[in-house]
Amino acid sequence: MDLSAILISMGGMGGIGLVFATGLAIANKKLYIEEDPRIEKVNDVLPGANCGGCGFAGCMNFAENVVKGNAPINGCPVGGVETANKIAEILGVEVEAGEPLKARVLCQGGLNEMAVKGEYMGLESCVAAHISGGAMKLCEWGCLGFGDCVEACPFDAMYMSENRLPVVIEDKCVGCGKCAEACPRNIIELHPVSHRVFVKCKNQDAGKYSRLVCTRACIGCGICVREAGDDMMYMENGLAHFNYDKWGDRNELPTQKCPNHVLVSLDEEGTDS
């Protein structure tokens, strides 16, 4: 073994490497690009989940657009007010605090409530069941119960109850809207946290039929609208709706007379059930 061979090869390779490294270092200086340093800073305070909840392709893209002024400072639904404040600090502007959004499941038709029309033996997926005519539940509007939303949730903020209904864990939900996108029946909606009462049904069938398919269906009787009065609620397509602009963040229900208990007020623990 000739030791000099090793030394020569080390020296040779090291020399070549050194020459190229120097060349690249000089080139880096010469070809340096002025990139807004704020983009990197904004990107650092973002959650980095790349969930796309803001509508841009990932956090970096959002950061670029915020700095350019194309995206609102509070555009990140995940980071919420905290992140918005940090971004505002970097960019030196004031934020108008955006209200955090939470996913709400607007269906109470679990296994116990819904009428069954037959046995479903297809793919265990809401989308597949929806396309092929809707699993075993008779309701054409309600939850299919295969948990596409739970699977879509990037934050583990949802689970399926024993009653085969998705449950949102409010503390974990960041309002990115992935679950709402995944639901083929649009049962999940994003609501500001100040919305405390909900019409938990999407069934637009005539009352006679909706009463058949589910014990928790809105039959469009309009009792709640009359009881609430003063434009607090309204009927649309045979379905009751809250007028949240007027109702505000009140937590009590306008009436206890809803025959199917479709009106639901969030309880203190805040989890959606």
Partner: peptide
């Protein structure tokens, strides 16, 4: 090795 070094640079 050296060729790859050249190419990468």
């Amino acid at each position: 090795v050296s060729f790859i070094l050249v190419i990468a640079s």
